[in-house]
Design a protein around this nucleic acid. Structure first.
Length: 471
RNA sequence: GGCGCCGUACCCAAGUGGUAAGGGAGUGGUCUGCAAAACCAUGAUGCACCGGUUCGAAUCCGGUCGGCGCCUCCA
């Protein structure tokens, strides 16, 4: 079975066929670095990571590009809200450049903890201003722009296909229902390519351009940078579902207007994380970062496992209860892999038996089915319970599957085995307790168990002696 | 108001025409000084509700109720 992906363009499941078999071009919209990413943002990056890993698992050579939006964008209101980065800088007494640097680093710290593969190219908007200017000039030369009130606008009426991704032709474009329309716009859905007219003095990020000193509109950066690194046409563009209507719609208009060619073949969008019946957002008061989860004792990979439990195209309900269940499940999985590592030996995947091969096929069919990771996880659990499969084969298959799951099972399972960083005192106490148990002094034995628990060490008595692990 | 999506057990969640995956929790058991862990067993005659199509519907069609998102920066 070939890889099938749900393409937002056309709203249908389609067989994936790359433009060039030797390299798949993948572009994902990256973060705007004015604040920490919340776990809802991170859900989308986990999804994109699963997409990339799936493609690589299936043998494709992927070129993954992601932008870093380090030019500020507007906080609210049509085109005249305050710039998010400037606001963050003003509030914290740092420069916008420091803000961008700080939160870019924080973002990559988070993705690393989630075992998200680093994009082959991470490109900053501020380092590609010239590419954007060039693209705007092309649009200008081709007659898609107009100047009004000091800003350069894209005229959507010049681009007949406008809105095909978002099915906008089926919608009545009723802009201005919630915000005041910028009176400079010929069509309410026109958007700014270049601003020279900022409402705010001391706007720190300004560049020279043929239209005057100013800064780029938001949508142009993705068009310009994806084009630089992936060319005029490439395979897959993904991002959050909220980008369908405006951002991706505008990107398509700009890029296709400039090149005169179809741009991207597959558009994939990740659904939102939902908490207390609302999408996660700072304004909704349900803003959780990965750091908060860590403070509460969760491993970032618990959150990754949690994301694996739902399909990327479905909203995922966050609750502490469901995160707990993901944590327990991941711990159980790691425990099983640890046992397999102790007893089994990793074999060559091509030499497994036919019964085991069936699981390989099931797993592959699951991810081929538009990245059905919940189903793929079910395959893993069913495999673990199957008594017909040897432990060597189980280990081999699961470590192979983990190339997609990205749970870092081999390292996690073996790392927790190491005793290097444990206090000698802990080992002494365990020894002392064993002695007490031998003498049937259970009061003392239980007391030591409590002491160890306070030290963060959990113990269990098995037939092979007492085992312990960090909680 | 327009557009898109969703409603499956206590929780999370697959399943889009052939008789309900998986995980967590719970319960019972084995083991244990006890505990924990582990292992074994166990859960929807049912898929928001009503009607229709069909030999057959969670899945298709119509309606009702409820929820989410986008239309404004947003993952």
């Amino acid at each position: 079975m070939a890889l099938k992906l749900y393409n937002t363009m056309g709203r249908s499941m389609q067989d994936f066929k790359p433009i060039d078999e030797s390299e798949v071009g993948l572009y994902g919209c990256g973060p705007t670095v004015y604040n920490y990413a919340h776990i809802g943002n991170l859900k989308t990056y986990v999804f994109e990571d699963l997409l990339r890993r799936t493609l690589e698992y299936l043998g494709y050579n992927v070129k993954h590009v992601m932008n870093i939006t380090d030019v500020g964008h507007l906080t609210d209101d049509a085109d005249d809200g305050e710039d998010k980065m400037e606001k963050s800088a003003r509030e914290t007494g740092r420069t916008v450049w420091e803000i961008a640097e700080f939160f870019t680093r924080a973002f990559f710290d988070d993705t690393k903890k989630l075992n998200i593969l680093t994009p082959h190219v991470s490109c900053k908007a501020t380092e590609h201003i010239q590419d954007m200017i060039d693209l705007i000039k092309t649009l200008e030369d081709r007659g898609f722009t107009y100047e009004a009130g000091g800003n350069i606008y894209f005229s959507i009426d010049k681009f007949p296909d406008y809105g095909k991704l978002a099915l906008l032709d089926r919608q009545k474009l009723s802009a201005g229902a919630r915000i005041e329309v910028d009176s400079n716009k010929k069509n309410p859905h026109d958007f700014v390519l270049w601003f020279t007219n900022s409402k705010f003095e001391n706007h720190a990020m300004l560049w020279d351009s043929p239209w005057g000193k100013g800064y780029p509109g938001w949508h142009i950066e993705c068009s310009a940078m994806s084009r630089r690194y992936l060319g005029d046409q490439f395979d897959i563009h993904c991002g959050g579902i909220d980008h369908v209507n405006i951002h991706h719609t505008n990107e398509i208009a700009q890029t296709e207007a400039a090149t005169g060619k179809k741009w991207v073949n597959y558009w994939l969008h990740g659904e939102f994380l939902v908490m207390n019946k609302a999408k996660m957002a700072k304004s909704a008061g349900n803003f959780l970062t990965l750091a908060v989860l860590e403070e509460k004792g969760y491993n970032p990979l618990d959150y990754r496992y949690f994301c694996l439990g739902g399909h990327y195209r479905s909203q995922l309900q966050f609750s502490w209860e469901s995160l707990d269940s993901a944590k327990t499940a991941r711990n159980n999985l790691v425990e099983k892999v640890r046992n397999l590592l102790e007893k089994g030996k990793k074999a060559d995947i091509s030499n497994i038996g036919s019964a085991a091969g069936k699981y390989c096929e099931d797993f592959r069919n699951s991810i081929n089915d538009d990245l059905n990771l919940p189903k793929a996880l079910a395959v893993v659990w069913t495999l673990l319970k199957d008594k017909e499969i040897s432990e060597d084969e189980k280990l081999t298959l699961i470590l192979d599957f983990d190339r997609v799951l990205g749970l870092d099972l081999e390292n996690t399972a073996s790392a927790e085995e190491k005793a290097d960083d444990v206090d000698q005192k802990v080992l002494d106490l365990i020894e002392e307790r064993a002695e007490a148990r031998k003498n049937r002094d259970f009061a003392k034995s239980d007391e030591i168990r409590d002491t160890l628990k306070e030290m963060g060490i959990e113990i269990k008595d098995t037939a092979d002696g007492t085992k312990w692990k960090k909680m």
